[in-house]
Simulated scan of single mutants.
Amino acid sequence: MFQQLFNDFITGLQFLTRIRLVTQVDCSQDSFRRSVKFFPIIGCLIGLLLSGIIYGLQLLGSGKIPSHVMACSLILIEILLTGALHCDGFMDTMDGIFSGRSRERILEIMKDSRVGSFGVIAFCLFALMKYSFILDMDSSLLALAFLVMPIVGRLAIVMAVTLFPYARREGLGKSFSYHADRRTLYIAGLCAGVILALLGRLALLSSLFGLIFAYIFAEYVNKRLEGLTGDIYGAVNELTELAVLFVFTCS
């Protein structure tokens, strides 16, 4: 039992990040399904790494590291840590959604490995907004924000996976959507809720705002495409993280 849980956790960790702990792991559809409940915990590990880097830079730099360098570095480190997985999904989603085409054509555009102008423009604006939020945020909240942000982002993915149908007949994301159920959401929500409650009121407030924003976006896309895809899961994560940062910046 413990070995299966460990394998499922590793499946999720090595899919969502570039962290490699083992060379071989059970990557069956059942393992992908079971790994979904670990997404917020994986997000917590990502957050601990990011907040640890922030704390180290602030401690060692003693305020001498320029804020612009800090902001750019954090965005770059997060992208490297996740292998730009969610960024790719975000760009593909924006290419499709803003194309103004039919459902079938939108899905075709999103499946195309090439990035279009809408995706590039959207990602540039997204990165600019994240950069601005980091600069404008109280530096004492930065480590906490980057701890909370990936937890809520991955919980939003679980919400998207379990609450909405899958738009395609096949695809990697279907391994998550087809097999995961409400029980998965309850487990993931409980794990995330306990962690976030320990982090304080601002963590809970930003989480609530981020999840509401994620649900509204997912519902909008679901109405247009009659379901979600793996790319949209990535977009949900990125937009949720941005919403969390917005709350921390405005607090």
Rank of each mutant, 00 (worst) to 15 (best):
F126C: 04
L163Q: 12
V158D: 02
L208V: 14
E238T: 01
Y166I: 08
D231G: 11
A218M: 12
F126I: 10
P165W: 12
L185S: 07
F176S: 05
L142E: 12
T229M: 04
V194Q: 04
I195L: 12
A203F: 03
A214I: 11
Y233Q: 00
N222K: 12
V161P: 00
Y233K: 08
G173E: 03
V194E: 01
G234S: 05
R224C: 09
A127T: 12
E219Y: 14
M137E: 06
L142F: 12
A122L: 10
D231T: 07
A160V: 09
A160E: 01
A167S: 11
V152L: 11
V152R: 06
A214H: 10
M137D: 06
A122H: 03
A197V: 13
K174R: 15
T229C: 08
S139I: 15
E170F: 04
Y186G: 00
G210A: 03
A188R: 03
R183F: 09
S207I: 02
Y186M: 13
R154F: 06
E238M: 11
L199A: 03
E226N: 13
L185K: 06
S132H: 08
F146T: 02
F123R: 02
R169I: 13
A188D: 09
A122K: 07
M159Q: 15
M149V: 10
Y215Q: 05
I212L: 14
R183M: 14
L147K: 10
I121K: 11
Y215W: 13
F126K: 07
N222E: 10
Y131H: 13
G171D: 09
L196G: 04
A203V: 06
I232P: 01
M159W: 03
R182Q: 15
I134L: 09
A197N: 02
A156R: 01
L142G: 12
V236G: 02
F217L: 08
A145F: 08
E226S: 06
K223Y: 11
D231W: 04
L190W: 04
V221F: 00
C191K: 04
A122M: 13
A188F: 02
A122F: 07
V194C: 09
A180M: 05
G153L: 01
D136P: 01
S140G: 01
R154S: 11
F217W: 05
V161I: 15
I187G: 06
S175M: 14
L208W: 03
I187F: 14
R182K: 15
L155I: 01
G234L: 04
L141V: 04
H179A: 13
M149P: 12
D138H: 11
I212M: 14
A156H: 04
F217N: 00
D136V: 02
G234T: 03
K174A: 09
R201K: 13
L128P: 10
L135M: 11
R201L: 15
A122V: 07
G153C: 09
M159N: 14
